[in-house]
Design a binder for these strands. Structure first.
Lengths: 344, 344
DNA sequence: TTGTAAGCGTTATCAA
DNA sequence: TTGATAACGCTTACAA
């Protein structure tokens, strides 16, 4: 039984090269058990490992220890600029705790989501950070009931028993409406995100409350729902809004992409922003300051959202019976050039 | 020895529930071996697995089969909008071939890169797609020599023996210079990316060739190198260029982020684009059409880059002795509002 | 300080 | 068609 020449070296190869037993080699390579070993032997083993380019087989290790030091991160769409900073925030915390992060992309597809989460579970991830929640989400509900350790980020599931980290959407929308009202707008429209997501619903409700509280126009015709959080759907909603001929002078978009869809329609119809219509986005994704006009929006601390979700997940892993808590991170209105007083 | 009540069910739990041996259960659950099993037994086993919420332990499986069906994808910076489409392209091909993709983010940090790749290797990935190559890259060179299956994407290592998929940078830059020359520019500057990367070097060389071929000004002062592919470094380079007082009327930026840095300096100094200076970017990242002014740039098919790299990796995995080949994907100039004839 | 041996959950080989 | 058994590479009581 010669040491395998082609494939990756195993602990046995290292042990043989160092002239010790595999158990000894294992102890020498693990910082926590290295003390049990004579310095001389440890050195010899480590040198052999180095020389062979040995990498411990993590499948074997986690099979034995039943720990994977891995968590899964479930993202709906990595090309939405909102998510990469979340990923970075998550990684910044988990890496320093010795965890690895497995990122999966569901493309907003339920079947793909199921398959990806299944794959994460079969890899024995110790927990999940999930950014794909919908208000009615049987899969997440089921995982939760099965006791899967999980933290939601950005969006929540309807029943609030799962720990979550989100931005303070309601306050953000209220700040946007307030800003428009102070500029003198009285007929403000809302192009909401999908009401099947908590962000869509919460922002939409916050919008209605804010206009009511300020005594502004509250016609149902002033609200249009987008089927998805995308530029195309934003544009479609904007066209619908114009068709309704509501006389609105400002628009609160469900997020920045929807606001960009508005920009497309303005270009299409020769409308001027902010002269004809003011627009406010949500998220403050990168490069909005360079748009024509620069987009007024609500900044959400995405990196911090990710970091806090990671910390919360670590807490949940460490203390499984921990009661679920929700964290609401403060947001702030960023005023740029897409908002101005209504044309007299 | 009761079946473990709390932790995840194993094949043994399923087998016991179905009243068969683990080997039988294994065969029943694997589509490829299911035929060896009586339909009745197979059904019973599958039902039991379903009922218990059984997920095969992939660590155990890959330990036994020495296959992980996993490849690693090494990205320098996920927040650069150029990379998410590459990720999607890679996934679109690999998923349909039954592979999973482990994405890691190096943050352009060598130490982190080493650690992440080590972690991928210890997870026995079957291959690597690497987007972090530098011209001089000892780590990649070493992995290559150790026989690690690997495809480079977007950038190459100096010694071209590693398979790679890249955009046709030289042609793209030539098209940009040609466009500016046809508009009447004769003094064109280049803000290059880091010359430690193949993209930086190739684009820079292509720029020099293009201006020489067209008989345009070739002063060394017209070229400034950016330390990194970032907006901030682009802005710094632009300031340096203005200080040199070269009389240039147009700028070919190494990529879109560097071009955005130029926009920042224009705003800072009250310069007008394209009246005072024309600018061309590279990559055609999202939303450039909505900038002020919309950015003329070179479109690179990033999704396809990713897809082709994935196909190439599959080929390499299937045929290890396959000679390295490089694939150059065509790019196209997208003319927008940031380029115009020089002010008379 | 080091070696022995068992076992993590799965699959492959062999036998029945 | 099914069952018994060994083995993948590693860690960890326990023994020496």
């Amino acid at each position: 039984m010669t040491p395998n020449p082609s494939s990756a070296p195993t602990l046995r190869d290292v042990a043989e090269a160092a002239g010790v037993h595999t158990a000894t080699a294992s102890r020498a390579l693990n910082p926590k058990t290295r003390q049990q070993i004579s310095a001389e032997t440890a050195r010899r083993v480590m040198r052999a490992a180095q020389a062979l380019g040995y990498q411990p087989n993590s499948a074997a290790r986690s099979l034995k220890t039943s720990r994977t030091s891995t968590v899964g991160l479930v993202i709906p769409d990595l090309t939405n600029p909102l998510f990469p900073p979340i990923v970075r925030g998550v990684e910044s915390v988990l890496e320093s705790s010795g965890y690895n992060v497995w990122i999966v992309n569901t493309d907003n597809d339920e079947e793909r989501e199921r398959a990806k989460i299944e794959s994460l579970r079969s890899r024995q991830v110790e927990g999940l950070i999930v950014a794909t929640a919908r208000l009615d989400h049987p899969l997440l509900q089921q995982l939760h009931e099965q006791g899967v350790t999980m933290v939601l980020i950005n969006r929540q599931v309807g029943d609030l028993r799962i720990p979550a980290v989100t931005g303070d959407d309601a306050t953000g929308v209220a700040a946007g409406v307030r800003h428009l009202a102070e500029l003198g707008h009285t007929r403000i429209a809302h192009l909401s995100g999908p009401l099947s997501t908590s962000t869509g619903l919460v922002r939409s409700q916050a919008f209605r409350h804010a206009v009511r509280d300020r005594g502004l126009a509250g016609d149902a015709a002033l609200v249009v729902e987008c089927a998805r959080w995308s530029e195309d759907d934003g544009a479609a909603a904007m066209r619908e809004l114009l068709e309704r001929d509501t006389g609105c002078t400002a628009v609160v978009a469900g997020n920045d992409l929807i606001a960009l869809g508005c920009y497309d329609v303005f270009a299409e119809r020769g409308l001027s922003c902010p002269d004809d219509l003011s627009v406010i986005g949500f998220n403050d994704m990168p490069f909005l300051d360079k748009l024509r006009p620069p987009l007024t929006t609500v900044a959400v601390p995405h990196h911090e959202l990710g970091a806090e979700a990671a910390r919360m997940l670590l807490d949940c892993i460490g203390e499984p019976e921990r009661p679920a808590r929700s964290l609401l991170l403060p947001v702030s209105l960023i005023v740029r050039g897409s908002t101005a007083p209504p044309r007299a």
